[in-house]
Design a binder for these strands. Structure first.
Lengths: 183, 183
DNA sequence: CACGCGAAGTAAGTGGCGCTAACATTAATC
DNA sequence: GATTAATGTTAGCGCCACTTACTTCGCGTG
């Protein structure tokens, strides 16, 4: 055992992510994350100003992961309507496959403007839809409508209002197609 | 000052609601609610098993308020498509006009199945849409699609992704019309 | 290559919180 | 009017976020 951990910052993020996955965003504590990283409870504050800063770091990772996934989902087709549909389905699946990452962006009570880069990273997720939206003669409004629909289905799944993931993904995609075509 | 408060249960709910409004669901504490009700920090536990139980009581009130508001919003017209559109707009407005009540149902980290009546009350909100959905030949799937879209816009407003309330309400209503007509 | 400085850890302590237990006071009931 | 149940209080436990002061160690410089 070395006195210095080596990569505590990353280890804490990992532990925090597991904790959020196990107990939800509220169940995560700095103290428990410290224990899992094998370090004193004061150590994390060398790397994160406070608890929210750690959560914000996770949220940042989440947004990047979302951007990558959604971009990949769009890459399979050139049809802009289909791209929007795939985005919606991918959004829904992300919420279920990575609940901890999803929750950290929407259920952790973070104020985006309090953490540098968060706002921007969040916008970049939706920026993925700019090209197809423009091809359809739509702008931000169309993007927001599609994203809102995807988000609604995702939130309902996480809340337990809906339970069938594939049905929700299919339905979200269908709604996106309808909304994208109606113009 | 009497030793017995008289209606502490209700006073605590009120204080809790104000706290959630001021500081968000995470910022609410039993201790602070006690202080505002002018009572010792242990007193609330005579009326609520734990913190979550108090939040659940608020969530229940929120669902009832939603049901009433949405039912009233539908009453203005007989056209089922228009009814769904008005629901979506009303949903968006509710999230902004009563952020504390809205947040308590979606951002408080409550597990619905842990609190009697919550699940049921939540379903009754969407039950408002049964009649118009059936008139359109749609069922639960249509209801969920409309509600998901409204919820997405509402969540985006609360997150700061969107800022213009009326624009969002209008857009949600338009999306609902499109989705309801496309069948 | 010593060394000294800054980065990264620890221990101890503060104040707040959720919650429980034991006791006090009031309201309700027979 | 006495008993009892409901509803308060005080005191205290354990956990948490965060701070301060001290320690250890890696690294860049003379």
């Amino acid at each position: 055992m070395t006195y210095h951990h080596g990569d505590l910052r990353h280890a804490l993020e990992q532990a925090a992510l597991e904790l959020v996955a196990e107990r939800g965003p509220q169940g995560f504590t700095m103290a428990e994350a410290s224990r899992r990283a094998g370090v004193s409870v004061a150590a994390p504050f060398r790397h994160f100003a406070n608890k929210d800063a750690l959560l914000a770091a996770l949220a940042l990772r989440s947004y990047e992961e979302q951007r990558d996934r959604f971009a990949a989902a769009l890459a399979g087709t050139d049809d802009p309507v289909e791209q929007l549909a795939r985005f919606a389905a991918a959004y829904v699946r992300f919420a279920v496959e990575e609940p901890a990452l999803f929750d950290v962006t929407f259920s952790a009570g973070l104020v985006k403007s309090d953490h540098d880069g968060l706002e921007e990273a969040g916008q970049q997720v939706l920026a993925v839809l700019r090209a197809p939206a423009e091809q359809l003669g739509g702008g931000l409004r169309l993007i927001h409508t599609i994203a809102a629909t995807g988000h609604g289905f995702a939130a309902f799944l996480r809340e337990g209002v809906l339970t069938d993931v594939e049905a929700a993904a299919t339905e979200a995609a269908a709604a996106a197609r309808t909304l994208a075509s109606a113009r």
